[in-house]
Structure formats: structure tokens, C-alpha cells
Simulated scan of single mutants.
Amino acid sequence: MRTGQNIYKRKDGRWEARVPLGIRANGRRYFKSLYAGTYREALGRKNAYEKNIPSVKETLPVPPNTFSVAAYGWLAASEQEWKPATYVRYRNYLEKYILPQWKLLHLREIDQKVYDALIALLEKSLSASSMQTINTVISGSLKHTLKQLPVTCKKFVSERRMTPRDILSKSEIFRLRSHLEAEEDLTAVGILLALYSGIRLGELCALTWADIDLETRTLYVRHTLQRIQNRNRLDGEPKTMLQIGLPKNKKERAIPLHEQILSVLEQTRRLYLPSDYLLSGTSTPVEPRRMSSRFKRILKECGLRDIRFHVLRHTFATYSLESGMRTKVLSELMGHSSVKITMDRYVHLSNEFKEAQMNNLQYTDSTSISRQKNGQNDAEAC
């Protein structure tokens, strides 16, 4: 409830008075907040604070042609195209790593030498993945304002490669399945579904029973659930919040249900409403962090090694390919934008499969070669 003089009543019952102190590099004002139990007390504290400083002067806005202004302009113009978590990540990287060096740098001053100096400084402590994000922010900001990129960005390749430990072995799958099938809770159902569909953890947490069509035997991935930074947080509010949005790449997809999981879902479905979440059985979802903890507890109960929930997705992709699934089909089921992503990131063929494929190799034997030669001679004679 606002009452004038930049004083308003908060939801927690306190009164907050704001004293303007200046304008940040992104063009937004920043304030000193003063709190009190009543409006008059807040006004008194505000007046006293203003008297104790020589003058409350607004700093001049950052010149419009600086990298800082260009970067915040790019963020504002592109925000609607991204998922909230993507926007937060780009802004955090900008403010933590780039602006400390480039905040007041004029766009005309950014050349290859300046770029290389920043990259040399940051890559000492950041991973290849983080450096790729740095490049995205820099190139996006410069292209948005200059319509071209005045530097050549260094390419970074992630050092992490898939290993056999990134998928479950057949014996591990058997032990995990045996344990889950003996359980009668929704957590077990969710893990089995992930193992037979390859969906991401956030997508699993966002599933409701309305997303599972047992008549057509189809799972529809329409949303994802994730915990993101609370950008407009007020005092007393949590720093993060749960957010349900579209899946990665903003693409919904349909996944045919495997026979092994279909019977489990049919037995469980009748107990819940279509609007109930799969993992909770209520109108409140289970957040990914909690589901991940449950998964690790089950691994411990099974006597299996400690792995991430995402390994189920790797396992699904690898064994699907080894079972003869076409890569294009697998890529669409995984929700990837290209087949290359599927093959590069999620498929690690087992040595057993490679050996079986190697045994399929056949060279023409000597008898066949002789027959081919005789056939050629007969043809020439004719």
C-alpha cells in the first residue's frame, strides 16, 4: 500500500521508506531502504537520513555507447525468448565476470586485443562450459548493438567426455529394476519411467497424470520444473523459487510408452486425479532436488554406486541405440535439436556391443573370389 513520498506498507506489516541514491550502469535507480512500524516513523527516519547526507545526488547515467548499456539492452530485448533460468545465468555471468572489466568500456574500444585479455584472465579459473557462456553474452551484446561482431571469439570444447561409468551396466539395471518393482510408491514409478523414456529430471517432476495417455500408450512431455533465482526478491523472501515452464528448446514432445512401464502405470493411474503430479500424487510437485535425494537413497539401498539421476537418460539413449533404434528417432524422443547432440553427448557404446558389431564384418573368401574371376572370364569370352 503506497501513500506517497516513496513510502509504502509491506506485506509483512512494516513500513518501508526509500531514499534514491543514484542510477546504476543498467539505467535503473537504486535506493536506501529504511523500515519502521508506522508511516510516521518511516517518514521521520527518511527525513533524518536525508539530513545526515550533504545531498542525495543522482549519478549521471553511464554513456549510452558503453558495453554495459549494450549488454543490458541485449538482455532486455531477448528475455522473452529465453527460459527464466537462461536469463538469470546470462545476467549473472555478465555481472560477475564481464562487467568488472568492461563496465565503462566504450564499444569502439573493444577489439581483439581487449577481448583476448579478458578471456586470458577468465579461463584461468572457469571451465570450458562457463567460457562458452561468456562468449555467448559478449557476442550477443555486441551483435545486438553493433549488428556485427568486431572480434573473433575463441572456441572452447568441454573437456568432459562420456565414459562407461556414465551409463548403468546390465547387471546394475537388473538390480535397480528388481528393487523398484518391489516397491509400491510413486518415487519408484518415476524412476522406472525415466529409465524407459529418457526424460530429464525436471520434466519428470513436472509430469501430471494428464500427461500420460494410457489409451494411446503415449507420454507427453509438456513442462519442466526447476528452482531458479528469485529476481524480484523482497526482504524476507527466499532467494530462489520453483518455476514450471516449457521443456528445453521450448518443444513439447510425445514418447511412446514401453511395455515394461505401461503395466506399472496402469496399476497406479486409477488412484489419482488427472491434475495430480506423478511423483507426489497431489496438486503439489516434488522438486528436482528432493527427487535426486530420493534416487541416491534408493541406489544406496540397492548397493549400487553413487550416480546422478541424469545417468538414467544416458543409459536409455545408449541401450536404445544398441537395440537397433534409429538415431533420428532417438534424437526426437530425447528432445534434442539435432542428431549430433544425441550422438556426441549421450551415447557411449559398450565394448560388448562393439565386439558384436565387429563380428559382423566379413571379407569375401577365396572361393568367392575365384568364382568372381571365372564369371568375368566367361563374360569376356561371350
Rank of each mutant, 00 (worst) to 15 (best):
I167W: 07
T187H: 11
E183P: 00
R177F: 00
V189N: 00
L193V: 07
A188F: 10
A182G: 12
R165P: 00
A206P: 03
E184S: 15
L207P: 03
C205G: 11
E181R: 13
S171Q: 14
R200C: 13
W209C: 02
S197P: 07
E159V: 12
D185F: 11
L204P: 04
H179R: 08
F174M: 01
V189S: 04
R177G: 02
G202L: 05
I191V: 10
V157I: 13
E203D: 10
G190I: 06
L204F: 10
S178H: 13
V157Q: 13
I173A: 06
S197N: 02
W209N: 02
A188C: 05
E183F: 05
R200P: 13
P164M: 09
E172A: 10
A210K: 14
F174C: 00
R160Y: 14
T208M: 09
S197L: 13
I173G: 01
L180D: 08
S169Y: 07
L207C: 04
C205A: 08
L193P: 05
W209V: 07
K170T: 13
L176R: 02
E172H: 11
T187P: 00
L192S: 01
L186M: 12
M162Y: 04
V157T: 15
S169A: 14
R165E: 15
L193T: 14
I199Q: 03
G198N: 04
M162R: 12
Y196A: 03
H179C: 01
